[in-house]
């Protein structure tokens, strides 16, 4: 069943001013419930505008965003309800922490939803567990946490709203490899357990390759591709044309193919690459 549907979406910043700029132009696609989608494109490709349109922070200039088949702007007064259903984690979300304790900060979203005390409590604890925060950290001030933990607390604040669709904009930016890996694993776990839809915006092709089912490629405000992850990365030359690159392992496969070795260029991880090359070597 489709959860998000985007129809001929267009968005123009600063309409009727000297600074008018089309950030998004005639974008249409459908996302099925339970999918893990990656969104890639370089800075200024329109991907940040797109995700803000999906949860009603921006209103389309033209076109519609449908959530469960209904236009999210059907009742503009009720747009907040949409933001609870389409949870959005911004870049460097740790900078939005403000409460006295981690617990209260995670509870901010559920509190705005008007939930009951015990329901909030349950959600806060669950969300904290999902992101790997320890029970005793809930009573700390968010400003006492380490950088990586702050980020987890901020993400927990959105997860606690139990959104049907979770959007993460560059969740691993600025983390070290260890933190990056751990956070991605948490997100993958969350996706598996809750079985809801996750949209991951990232510059890191390795991250996208590791976790997503399908990838949406954006360039100059337009949709370039939306296809299975391996299918997208096997089109390395097309990606490079718009200034994107493929994971190093995929690139190696690509180079081998250019040398006339019959390898599968849709390889996304080192493990797969290893198996592929062993297969070829042992067939010689």
């Amino acid at each position: 069943m489709s959860v998000l549907q985007v129809e001929n979406l267009r968005f123009v910043y600063g309409t009727d001013t000297a600074f008018e700029k089309t950030a998004l132009d005639d974008v249409s696609f459908t996302i099925e419930s339970g999918e893990f989608i990656g969104i890639i494109g370089h800075t200024g490709s329109g991907k940040s505008t797109l995700v803000q349109l999906l949860n009603g922070l921006l209103r389309p200039t033209e076109g519609r965003v449908l959530l469960d088949g209904k236009d999210i702007w059907e009742h503009p007064k009720k747009i907040r309800q949409i933001r609870f259903k389409v949870g959005m984690v911004f870049q460097y979300p740790e900078y939005q922490l403000f409460e006295e304790t981690v617990y209260k900060d995670i509870a901010f979203g559920p509190g705005n939803m008007g939930l009951k005390e015990d329901e909030i409590d349950q959600r806060v604890r669950q969300a904290a567990a999902f992101t790997g925060l320890r029970e005793e950290q809930l009573s700390c001030s968010p400003f006492e946490l380490s950088g990586g933990e702050k980020r987890r607390a901020a993400i927990a604040g959105v997860i606690a709203m139990d959104p049907d669709v979770l959007i993460l904009d560059e969740p691993t930016a600025g983390l070290d490899p260890l933190g990056r890996e751990a956070l991605l694993a948490k997100i993958a776990d969350y996706h598996k357990v809750r079985n809801n839809t996750v949209l991951l915006v990232s510059h890191s092709m390795e991250d996208i390759a590791k976790s997503t089912d399908r990838v949406l490629v954006m360039d100059h405000g337009k949709k370039v591709m939306l296809d299975r992850t391996d299918a997208v990365f096997s089109k390395g030359d097309e990606l490079e044309k718009i200034g994107l690159r493929v994971p190093q392992i995929t690139r190696i496969m690509w180079l081998l193919k250019e040398k006339g070795i019959p390898v599968d260029t849709s390889v996304l991880t080192v493990e797969k690459g290893f198996q592929e090359i062993v297969k070829i070597l042992s067939s010689q």
Binding site: L57, R80, R83, F90, P93, F108, N112, M161
Partner: peptide, 15 residues
């Protein structure tokens, strides 16, 4: 920065 933070809090249902 104010713009960004406002958006982030709005996304958490701040009215």
């Amino acid at each position: 920065e104010t713009d960004k933070i406002m958006n982030a809090q709005k996304a958490r249902g701040a009215d």
